[in-house]
């Protein structure tokens, strides 16, 4: 029972602030609500019993990506952005695409309404660590390579070239 209440609260926070992220005009508010939505998703992970995902969602998404977004908004913002229309002219076509997708996903999700969980969730941090250093050792190393490449790429793209030119 308490699990259901927690799920509905967290899902409401996640979905409501996600809607605000895509509809608000002020980009700073959008970035802040993105952080709230990601925190709601972290709470949903909590109701699923995925404790390590819960922690890393807060660490990586709320503490890293949302803050990075706020930095980017503040670096690249102008005062006119705060009130300007943020939705393009094709929003009606976008709504149509979303409605068609929603019908398909609705039918797929409705078929799963009978699958209930068995037992209580177990702690997942230790098995995750064993999996990462056992079966998934190669993808684990590859993902660190991807992170290094992303870091180098970010530095390469944003550095100012020497000699006055921007």
């Amino acid at each position: 029972m308490i699990e259901s209440i927690a799920f509905y609260m967290m899902a409401g926070v996640a979905l409501g602030s996600a809607l605000l992220v895509v509809t608000l005009r002020n980009t700073v508010h959008c970035a802040l609500f993105l952080g709230l939505s990601l925190a709601g998703v972290a709470g949903v992970f909590g109701t699923l019993g995925a404790d390590f995902l819960f922690a890393s969602q807060i660490l990586i998404y709320v503490g890293g990506i949302a803050v990075l977004m706020i930095f980017a908004v503040m670096l690249m913002g102008r005062t006119s952005d705060l009130t300007l229309r943020q939705v393009n002219q094709e929003w009606l076509a976008g709504l149509l695409v979303c409605a068609i997708t929603a019908v398909g996903l609705w039918r797929a999700a409705k078929a799963c309404l009978s699958a209930t969980a068995s037992g209580s969730p177990a702690a997942s941090t230790r098995p995750l660590g064993r999996l990462m250093l056992g079966d998934y050792a190669v993808p684990f190393e590859l993902i660190s390579l991807v992170l290094t490449a992303a870091l180098l790429g970010a530095i390469f793209f944003t550095r100012r070239e020497a000699g006055g030119r921007k």
Binding site: E3, A14, L15, C98, A102, A108
Partner: peptide, 19 residues
């Protein structure tokens, strides 16, 4: 709670993101 509840949440987030 069933699997469907979580799938509904996932599809809702996905559709909002697509929009």
């Amino acid at each position: 709670l069933t699997l469907g509840h979580y799938l509904f949440l996932g599809s809702g987030l996905f559709i909002i993101g697509i929009f």
